[in-house]
Amino acid sequence: MNAYAEIYKDELLNEVIPFWEKYSLDKDCGGFFTCLTQNGEVYDTDKFIWLQARQVWMFSTLYKSVQKKESWKEMAVSGADFLEKHGRDQKGNWYFSLNQSGRPLVQPYNIFSDCFAAMAFGKLYEIAPEERYKKISTNTFANILKRQHNPKGNYNKAVPGTRNLQNFALPMILCNLSLELEPLLGSDSVTEITDSVIDLVMNTFYDETSGLVLENVSDMGEFIDCFEGRLLNPGHAIEAMWFVMNLGIRKNDKALIEKAEKIMFQQLEHGWDDEHGGIFYFMDVKGYPTQQLEHDQKLWWVHLETLVALAKTYAYNQNPKAANWFKKVHDYTWEHFRDTKNGGEWFGYLNREGKVLLDLKGGKWKGCFHVPRALLEVWKTLKNTAI
């Protein structure tokens, strides 16, 4: 397995990161272009807070954990300066999107803008310890905790009281975000926050009977038999399990790590497409049709996060099952998502048969994050494995 480490390192440093360095920086207005064609041409100049913040985090992380390369630090600072100047409303909530110059386009309805902004400024503070970066990160994180039980606030379209649901995504992200911000928050705060979200992820959203993780449950933690209540997102659940593995290692909790490993395999085995290969995007826990028309597409981040989870499982206990699944998912992912003709960043969207649906390299949802983060995580995780 350690032979894969060099492959992932080479792809990260010689293909994927150079693509974003060459094409994404907006030298006129600051921040990053993320809507990039197969060849790096900018096809839309709008700026999405998730992707701006994720790229700040990515380049800060590279500077901190790979090499103190000044151009990487400058890239992170450029994105952060744009976000600091334009990204928030007067209450400190982060918008969803801006135009090229930074004027807001979409209101701060989505708390994940805040999550990735907190993560970005927290990591930037570690490499550029300016107090304002720390303050932005910690204030944003405090706002997330304040909003977590009603994350959309006034922008929530649901009528209260009829079918109150809680969604898996925020507890999942808090597992990782809290750990990311431990240098700023302190270990006691992280332990307090993560203990509660681990319980949600591993006990409330995990359905012991089916062995599957539900995307939505009632506000009392119960199964609701409707489109939302039956919804599965295998990639989300698998990604959450490597977050939980990291927390289990931090807590020295072997039982938690082993439970995360078990749940990860259950999602992967259920979500794998035996006919065409790859992992389904959405599924229904009862096998009914989903409301998502893209349910059988194969997405880049689902497969890359699965590779991270499998690499971490193997590194922890050298489980041959993890090695076998890693090779299977690796072969599918590298064959179908990687652009063998042009190099650089990978494709993101395939149809069920594994053919490229959109030949973009970045867009409204895909930026400089899942591909490079996964390459980095797999490289760092496997480089010291015995075989």
Rank of each mutant, 00 (worst) to 15 (best):
D273Y: 08
D331N: 15
D331H: 15
L382I: 11
T37P: 04
N139P: 02
I257K: 12
R163Y: 11
V308M: 03
L184H: 01
D207T: 01
Q148S: 12
G362W: 02
M264T: 13
C175P: 00
W20P: 00
D199N: 15
K286S: 09
K73G: 05
K135R: 15
T333Y: 02
Q291I: 06
V106S: 02
L36D: 07
K251E: 01
G186P: 05
A169H: 10
Y23I: 02
R163F: 11
W272D: 04
F82N: 00
K286N: 12
Q100K: 14
E269A: 06
N252Y: 15
L179S: 05
H236T: 05
N351D: 15
T385Q: 12
P108I: 12
T290L: 10
E353Q: 14
F227Y: 14
R88P: 00
I7K: 15
D46S: 11
L12W: 05
T333C: 08
N93S: 12
I7F: 07
A309M: 05
W365L: 08
N2Y: 10
G40Y: 06
K380G: 00
E228Q: 13
S78A: 11
V56C: 04
Q292N: 12
F347R: 05
R88F: 07
D44N: 13
D10W: 06
E261G: 00
E228S: 14
E222Q: 14
I263L: 06
G343R: 10
G271C: 12
K366Q: 04
T138A: 07
T209D: 14
P320S: 08
H276G: 01
D284E: 04
K251P: 00
I263P: 00
F369Q: 01
H276C: 10
G362E: 03
S101T: 09
Y133N: 03
K355S: 13
A323F: 10
F116N: 01
W57M: 11
K355V: 05
F33T: 00
I249D: 04
Y314H: 13
K361W: 10
W94I: 02
E335D: 13
F265E: 00
G363R: 11
L51T: 12
D46V: 13
G102Y: 04
V159K: 15
R88K: 15
D81F: 11
T333F: 01
P129K: 15
Q318Y: 14
L83A: 02
K146P: 02
V244G: 01
P160D: 14
W57N: 06
K47S: 07
K69L: 11
N252W: 11
L177D: 02
D273I: 04
F205L: 08
A169D: 09
I144H: 13
T194A: 06
G102W: 01
W272K: 12
Q318A: 14
C226M: 09
T37E: 08
P320E: 13
L25M: 11
